[in-house]
């Protein structure tokens, strides 16, 4: 691959790859290392990819495997899938949605289990469908769907909790009585 093509590939994918890496590794340094490592692997092995339409999926898959490898996990995390609750939490009401920014979302994601973080972060990266998630994470489609479902439910719960806390703190007379005098 010529340098220009390589640069185009980096320009196109480094941001979503970094975001995915950050959602897994949780630190900017590790996320940057994983992203760099992914492109280094690509530079060495890209000749093996015959179908250019699979490039994106290959990059995300490689990053995910590198992440698992770095954690010295030769096999995927084994986790019991919890039963789905009787009633899934509804989406967050529209009037609260405007309070959700990148920091809130990432901090909630950070608290979630890795088995949920990976599909959820891939889902919210542009253009990654559940079928691609299944390929990248090497999971059956049904498992991806149920994990996405549970992950969204967890995320809603955590965000709602954070919004409640922030609402509470936004009342100066409740958080600090002295604020009333300012």
């Amino acid at each position: 691959m010529k340098a220009k093509e390589f640069q185009q590939l980096v320009d196109e994918y480094y941001e979503p790859l970094y975001r995915f890496a950050f959602s897994l590794a949780k630190t900017p340094e590790d996320a940057a290392d994983l992203t760099q490592q992914t492109f280094a692997t690509w530079a060495k092995k890209q000749h093996q990819i015959r179908d250019r339409g699979k490039v994106k999926s290959w990059l995300f898959t490689t990053l995910y495997r590198d992440f698992l490898g770095q954690k010295q996990k030769k096999q995927r995390l084994v986790m019991e899938e919890p039963e789905l609750p009787d009633r899934l939490p509804d989406p967050i009401p529209e009037k609260y949605l405007h309070q959700i920014d990148s920091n809130t979302l990432l901090s909630c994601l950070d608290e979630m289990d890795e088995n949920y973080r990976a599909p959820l972060s891939l889902f919210y990266l542009e253009d990654v469908s559940y079928r691609e998630i299944s390929e990248i994470l090497d999971l059956p489609i049904g498992t991806v769907m149920s994990r996405l479902n549970r992950a969204k439910a967890q995320l809603r719960d955590r965000i709602t909790e954070k919004l409640k806390q922030s609402d509470f703190l936004s009342f100066p007379n409740l958080s600090n009585p002295n604020d009333q005098n300012e």
């Binding site: 941001e15 990148s102 990432l106 542009e126």
Partner: peptide, 12 residues
């Protein structure tokens, strides 16, 4: 909203 917020996080 989630998709937009997620994609707002900056890469170095």
């Amino acid at each position: 909203v989630f998709r937009r917020a997620f994609n707002e996080s900056p890469a170095p």
